[in-house]
Design a protein around this nucleic acid. Structure first.
Lengths: 106, 106
DNA sequence: GTTATCTATAACCATCAAGTTACATAAAGG
DNA sequence: CCTTTATGTAACTTGATGGTTATAGATAAC
């Protein structure tokens, strides 16, 4: 995973509103209105967050009538976890199992 | 892990210089001078990055004579991975193994 | 105690990020 | 078509971020 991509992914995850959006999308796809209702901020603010998430590859979006549904994409989350796992030497307890896990990804 | 802590950890990881510092520290502890030599930026810039990493709990530091050695701390990396793993439903292939892994952490 | 080395801090600058309000655009329905 | 609903975009404000240079502070050596 490139530095540029990791910048985008970790940058996207660095905001709690965006993390909450991802948590919501993990349950079910949602449109902008659904997501706006969850927070105390304006719809344009949510649209901006969705744009950041989309550019990081963390969500995809498609039109459904007048609405646009956001859908969680797990690929970048997987890759970010892969990056973190490079430090597995420091995860002393579960070194072996993590190795297994990583081998099995993609 | 609190939202505040996740903000700090993902925010710290969102910068490629800081990720490179962590990668260097994964091999061996280093002082500010060592780290400055790796990049094309000033020593104060590196000191600032180290401060960010320290506040995120990703490194600890202790004096060794006139130098201060930075040491990688894996705890927050582990917890950030734990957060990412909440999306394991989307990691279809390795669902079971990741569950095992998480149960074994801490 | 002076000097040399290593690191931190202060002050500053430019850019970016996260929010706002106001308005424009897209699709569906009567 | 005109209206309604849903969303995107523009312009702006505020504060954070990432860098700089210059300087101060801490420790060791002499």
């Amino acid at each position: 995973m490139s530095d540029e991509q990791l910048d985008l992914v970790f940058g996207a995850l660095a905001d709690r509103t965006r993390r909450a959006i991802l948590a919501r999308l993990a349950r079910e796809d949602a449109n902008v209105g659904d997501l706006t209702a969850l927070f105390t901020m304006s719809q344009p603010a949510i649209s901006k967050h969705l744009k950041v998430l989309e550019q990081a590859g963390l969500i995809s979006r498609n039109r459904q009538g007048t609405m646009r549904l956001s859908h969680l994409e797990a690929g970048p989350l997987k890759q970010a976890t892969g990056w973190l796992a490079d430090y597995r030497e420091y995860w002393t307890e579960s070194y072996a199992r993590l190795d297994e896990l990583l081998d099995s990804l993609d």
